[in-house]
Amino acid sequence: MDVLSDVIAVMRTGEPRSALVEWRAPWGQRFRTVPGAAGFQIVLRGPCWLIPEDGDPFPLAAGDVVFLPHKGQHGLADAPSTPLVEHVCDPQDDARFERRYAAAPHEPPPAGSSTTVTLCGAYQLDAARVHPLLADLPPLLHLPARLGHHPRLRAAIDLLGAELEEPQPGTAALVPALLDTLLLYILRAWLADQPVDGRATGWAAALADPAISTALEAIHHDPARPWTVGSLGAHAGLSRAAFSRRFTALVGRPPLAYLTWWRLTTAMRLLRGSDAPLSVVAEQVGYGSEFSFANAFKREFGVPPGGYRRNSKAAARKLTSALAGP
């Protein structure tokens, strides 16, 4: 897997939620997400205003995309002065996707009022293990609609909107896949829009740097390999010292520190998602023995890998029971 795919695979938990909402002026709603969730808003038709938690309101137009990767609190309204009604956007809600109306769907709109259609949603992320790429994102990403710009993102939006507007056989399987696709395209679009020069730092600059991105791909492709700073530098085509300096400056931690972080993060995913013996998990993430793996895991997370697996499975069973209802 490539770096961006790995980030999504590790960070995402549960299934995303989405809704197609038709608003009729005057309207205003405040969206709050549960801890660890990221939210998005896409304007499909008509104008509206986004009211961020911090900062001034600004107008949105059809085709605009807003992604809130950290907390997700925000408001939407037909005008900045319209009072906001509270709504909690919880990715663990039983309704995975739906179409909602801010007014009765068959009521004629009042004379002179405008109608806005938005596509909103939320992703549940692993708050205990935030990948630095996502931590590097600003509180709010605004991707304005521009003709011919990010055509794949636009295609994903059109497909998702069509499935929610007119559900067909297979919609229940398509919508979660399209939501994951949408998240990847949003992140791709933001990374592509970042100005990168010789002084830039952060993950946008790291992935745009041929040498550092090559090293990151190598780590993610084969975390179990006994990498050293020298072998990673050689793989990237740089001397050991030059590679270490550049990697640390762009990624925010030294090469072997990131390698260890990624190995243990991958181990968390394997422990949650499989019943493989601890010795197998240790081998898959580059530890020579179950003992050394257990020590490293407990040092990082404060709990041994076996205990982490039991706790994760118990939490998953509790969530499944809660969603199933009485």
Rank of each mutant, 00 (worst) to 15 (best):
F67M: 12
F67Q: 10
L68W: 10
P69Q: 10
P69G: 11
H70E: 07
H74I: 02
G75M: 04
D78N: 15
D78L: 01
P80I: 01
P80E: 03
T82W: 00
T82S: 09
V85Y: 01
E86Q: 13
V88S: 07
P91E: 11
D94Y: 00
D94H: 06
R96T: 05
R96L: 13
F97D: 13
E98M: 13
R99P: 02
Y101F: 15
Y101E: 05
A103C: 04
A104Y: 04
A104M: 02
P105N: 06
P105T: 02
E107H: 03
E107Y: 01
P108M: 06
P109T: 06
P110K: 09
A111K: 05
S113K: 05
V117M: 09
T118P: 11
C120I: 15
G121N: 10
G121F: 12
A127K: 04
A128K: 04
A128E: 14
R129M: 06
R129E: 14
L133R: 00
D136F: 03
L137W: 12
L137I: 06
H142C: 08
H142R: 13
H142N: 09
R146N: 00
L147M: 04
L147Y: 02
H149K: 04
H149C: 04
L153Y: 08
R154P: 03
A155I: 00
A155Q: 14
A156T: 14
L159A: 15
A162I: 00
E163M: 06
E165T: 02
E166H: 13
P167W: 04
G170K: 07
G170Y: 12
T171P: 10
A172H: 08
L178H: 11
L178K: 07
L178S: 11
L178F: 06
L179I: 00
L179N: 14
L183F: 05
L183C: 08
Y185E: 15
L187S: 09
W190F: 14
W190K: 03
